[in-house]
Design a protein around this nucleic acid. Structure first.
Lengths: 250, 250
DNA sequence: GCTTGTGAATCTGTTCACAGCA
DNA sequence: TGCTGTGAACAGATTCACAAGC
């Protein structure tokens, strides 16, 4: 589990700045930027579909819901794909971002857990269309195994190793109940999965080479509720509160 | 659109540091902390269920997947609910966080869009159990309206104003196709909704007093794919890669 | 003219390290 | 002796503002 084997950020402290300065052509895009690339790509695709050829940082930023300066800074981490005085070539920029985001190849995905959510995900068309074909459906319940969804058979969790090997998947989606999530996660990791999208309401413990992203609807709701809470007691809706400057919506 | 009336963090720009120093007892919890409160609450609830009475920042941090210092800093924004040399009282701390997260009252929720995802969400039990009863299901398609899910009737989007007024909901979930999302969003806002959880793959434009959180499965996948991309070409799995500095997984 | 790309300034969040207290 | 709570140091991300270039 959290046994040593770490060694990560070991010599990071001391070396840092000076060492990284030369020899490297500026690798690594900031994580915050990576998280926005899909948004930019989506906006660019929409623009391309409507026949727009070039777009300015201002326009693209508006479509993506960010500020122009942020967009330019983000894109600058990828390279210089714009033309001063003109803007960005929509198709070319989309291609460049697509490259980074792995659009050039399909990423086969395994879905584990076929309750309500798992089934909805298995039927979700946007999955395949975005380059993530669902190649296997896995569950533990004997009465579920053997069924089919969208023509794809549901296989047993006991055959996970074979399933992963056969499909070549490296990404998995966990849509099981919270109690089963960690166990399933361990099995996925053992089978060679290195990226996991976790819909279960649990914190997963994984080795350092495995990346997990969590989607927790309940938590999102609670974050919204936190802010609703603030509003309620303060001022009545409709009644103009005191000062306030409009926010530019992030 | 960006008219205005919030009231909170009002004169922030100009005043800043100097002014904020005195008179204010440190209001407002950082957004990053707010996003973690639900995780802490979940971990505490689990601990309480197993009968644990007190917990140290180290143990709770491990359960929540953060560092102890981070947990203490986060909790310090809420007040001093721990006991030096001992730890935190599980039940009391859970109560305090629950208070902030709005656990004390139910937050009725409306779900708009009853395709695969909407139906899965409507059936999602964890919704109600976390204090977010689904009080209305809304769709636009005539052939869907009139049906029932979990005993709840599906009403027409045309009756939205009445539905919101009747239920008193302030939070809504958008699970429509992307094309319909902005239109639905506008209608929700007009009806009085002030918090939205958006599952559609679009950036929503809303007035400043409305809060939106987005859940986009496709985007999450692309973020995972971005990192998979880095790994792939570099070294074979199993074969120790060259240099390579391990990242410290957050 | 116009818009990009980027250093510098700022803001936000995280981590350290230790004083304060049971 | 612990473990919390927190100032101070650090790191990361955002925003500003302007030089560079079409």
């Amino acid at each position: 589990m959290s046994s040593a084997l770490v060694g990560p950020q070991t010599a990071k402290r001391a070396s840092a700045k000076r060492a990284a300065k030369e020899s490297r052509p500026a690798r690594s895009v900031p994580e915050a930027t990576v998280a926005r690339l899909p948004v930019y790509l989506h906006a660019l695709t929409a623009l391309a579909d409507t026949g727009v050829r070039t777009v300015s940082s201002g326009d693209l930023a508006r479509a993506a819901g960010v500020k122009p300066a942020q967009l330019r800074k983000d894109l600058s981490h990828l390279g210089s794909y714009g033309t001063r005085g003109v803007g960005y070539d929509v198709v070319n920029l989309a291609a460049q971002i697509g490259l980074r985001v792995g659009d050039s190849q399909p990423w086969p995905v395994i879905i584990v857990g076929l309750g309500n959510l798992g089934r909805a995900l298995a039927n979700y068309a946007g999955f395949r269309s975005r380059g993530f074909p669902v190649v296997a459906l896995v569950d533990a319940a004997p009465e579920v195994v053997g069924g089919r969804i969208e023509g794809l058979p549901i296989t047993s969790i006991d055959d996970l190793d074979a399933t992963v090997a056969a499909t070549g998947a490296t990404i998995a989606v966990i849509a099981t109940p919270a109690e089963a999530a960690q166990r399933v996660c361990d099995q996925l990791v053992a089978a060679g999965i290195t990226s996991i999208l976790n819909f279960a309401a649990t914190v997963l413990t994984v080795p350092s080479w495995v990346r997990v992203r969590k989607v927790d609807v309940g938590q999102e709701m609670q974050i919204l509720a936190y802010h609703e809470q603030r509003k309620g007691p303060a001022g009545l809706p409709g009644a103009p509160a005191v000062a306030h400057f409009a926010e530019g919506e992030s």
